[in-house]
C-alpha cells in the first residue's frame, strides 16, 4: 500500500489529471507524477509557463538552445499533436508513452514512419531521406560525397521500396523494420521504466501539495 490514496492524489493546475493520463497510457499514476517533475524542469528552463516550447525542447535534448536540428524539430512537431507550437503535459505523457518499453510495437512503427515522413504525405520519399542524411552529415561533421549518398539511397530503396515506385509506404515500412529490427531501438526508452526512481521528488511534492491545499 502506498502512502496516498487515489482521492488524495495531486492535481496539476492547468494540466490534465494524472489518473486520467495513467488510464490512457502504460504509465502508473506515480509514473505520471514523476513525469510531471521532468516536465516542470523542461517547461521552466526558458519561460516558466507550464508549456514546453521548441527552444526548451532543444535545450533539454542538447543542453544548448542555439542548436537547431531537423530531427529534434520533427519529434517536437509529433509531440505537439494539437499544432499549438508548444507541448502541454498531456501531449508530453501521451507521446512519451509510445517510447515506453511496454507500448505496442505497432505504435512504435507508426510513430517512426511519421517521423521520417517529413512532409506528412503518407510516404517516405527519396528526397526526404536524402534531406535527413544531409542533416545528419551536417550534425556529425562527417563528409560524404554526393555519389556516396546516392549509393546509400539506392541500396536503401532497393531494400525498402518493394514496389519500386520511388517512395516507401506504410506497409513497406512495416516490412522493412521487421527485417531490420535495430531501426526500432530509438523507439524505446528504458528510462521510462524507472521514471519514479529517476525523479523521486514527485513523492515529496505530492505531500507538500496535500498540506498546502
Amino acid at each position: 500500500m502506498g502512502c496516498f490514496s487515489s482521492k488524495h492524489r495531486r492535481q496539476f493546475p492547468g494540466h490534465e489529471d494524472p489518473v486520467s493520463l495513467a488510464s490512457q497510457t502504460a504509465f502508473t499514476v506515480s509514473e505520471v507524477e514523476a513525469l510531471f517533475e521532468l516536465f516542470k524542469s523542461i517547461s521552466s528552463s526558458v519561460i516558466d509557463d507550464g508549456l514546453i516550447s521548441k527552444e526548451e525542447f532543444q535545450l533539454a535534448l542538447f543542453k544548448n538552445r542555439k542548436k537547431e536540428n531537423l530531427f529534434a524539430n520533427r519529434i517536437f512537431d509529433l509531440f505537439d499533436v494539437k499544432h499549438k507550437g508548444v507541448i502541454d503535459f498531456g501531449d508530453f505523457v501521451r507521446a512519451l508513452n509510445v517510447f515506453h518499453p511496454n507500448a505496442p510495437h505497432e505504435d512504435k512503427v507508426d510513430f517512426s514512419f511519421k517521423l521520417y515522413d517529413l512532409d506528412s504525405t503518407g510516404f517516405i520519399e527519396r528526397q526526404e531521406v536524402k534531406q535527413m542524411l544531409i542533416a545528419l552529415l551536417c550534425e556529425s561533421e562527417m563528409k560524404l560525397a554526393d555519389e556516396t549518398i546516392e549509393i546509400i539511397l539506392d541500396k536503401t530503396f532497393v531494400d525498402a521500396d518493394v514496389n519500386q515506385d520511388g517512395k516507401i509506404d506504410k506497409e513497406e515500412w512495416q516490412n522493412f523494420v521487421s527485417r531490420n529490427p535495430s531501426l526500432m531501438k530509438i523507439m524505446t526508452l528504458p528510462y521510462l521504466r524507472d521514471i519514479t526512481t529517476t525523479f523521486p521528488s514527485f513523492v515529496f511534492n505530492s505531500e507538500v501539495d496535500e498540506i498546502a491545499t
Binding site: L38, S41, I42, A60, L61, F62, K63, N69, L70, F71, A72, N73, R74, I75, F99, L115, Y116, V129, M132, L133, A135, L136, E139, S140, M142, L144, T148, I151, I152, L153, K155, T156, D159, A160, F176, N180, S182, L183, K185, I186, L189, Y191, I195, T198
Partner: peptide, 24 residues
C-alpha cells in the same frame, strides 16, 4: 557508411536520442 542503410545512419542522430531528456 556505404554498407549501412540510410535509416541506420539517420537513427544515430543526437536529435533522435530522447534519452538525453532524462539526463539531469
Amino acid at each position: 557508411p556505404v554498407l549501412m542503410n540510410a535509416f541506420e545512419l539517420i537513427s544515430t542522430s543526437q536529435g533522435l536520442n530522447l534519452s538525453s531528456l532524462f539526463e539531469k
